[in-house]
Amino acid sequence: MIEILFYILSAVTLGSAFLTILSKNPIHSAIWLVICFFSIAGHYALLNSQFLAMVHIIVYSGAIMILMLFTIMLMNLNISDEIAKPIVTKIIATVCFCLIGFFLVSSLAQTAPALETYTQTGVDFQTIQVLGKVLLNEFVLPFEMAAILLLMAMIGAVLISKKEKKTA
C-alpha cells in the first residue's frame, strides 16, 4: 500500500517537474510546480515528518508560488512569447541532463553496498514537539539568524523593486 503510494507520488513529482520545464506558458509552469511541491509534501508525510510537510505546503506552495504567479502576472508574461533556444543548446541541455543523471546514478550504484539495511528503533524524533525543542535549544542562534535573513530579504526586495525616482 505505502509502496504503491510512493511510486504514484514519485511519478507525479517527476512528471510535474518535467512539465514545469517544458510548458511554454509560465503560468502553466507555475501550476505544474505547485503540483510538484504538493507531491513532495506528500513524500514528507510518507516519511512521517508532518511538521515539514505542513511547512512545505505553506511556504512553497503557498508563499513562494503565489509570489511567482504574482510576478508573472505583473509582468504580463502569461502569453508564451518566449523565443526558443537554439537547437544546439537544447541538445547540450539534454546531454547534460543525461550525463549528470548517469554519473550520479552510477556513483550511487558504486557506493550502494555502503547502505545498510534500515532498522527502526521507535524513538520519537520528528514530532512537532521534539523539533520545536531542538530548534529553540540547539539551533536557537541559526533560528534567529534565519529571522534576520528574512527581514533583510524583505527590506531588500522592497528596496530593489521600488520604482526609481526620475530625478535620481
Binding site: T89, I92, C96, F103, S106, S107
Partner: peptide, 19 residues
C-alpha cells in the same frame, strides 16, 4: 547556460574521479 554546462562537466568529472 555555459557556466552551468561547465559546472555539470566538472561535477561529472569529480564524481568519476571519486567513485
Amino acid at each position: 547556460g555555459l557556466y552551468l554546462f561547465a559546472f555539470v562537466i566538472g561535477v561529472c568529472g569529480l564524481l568519476y574521479y571519486l567513485f
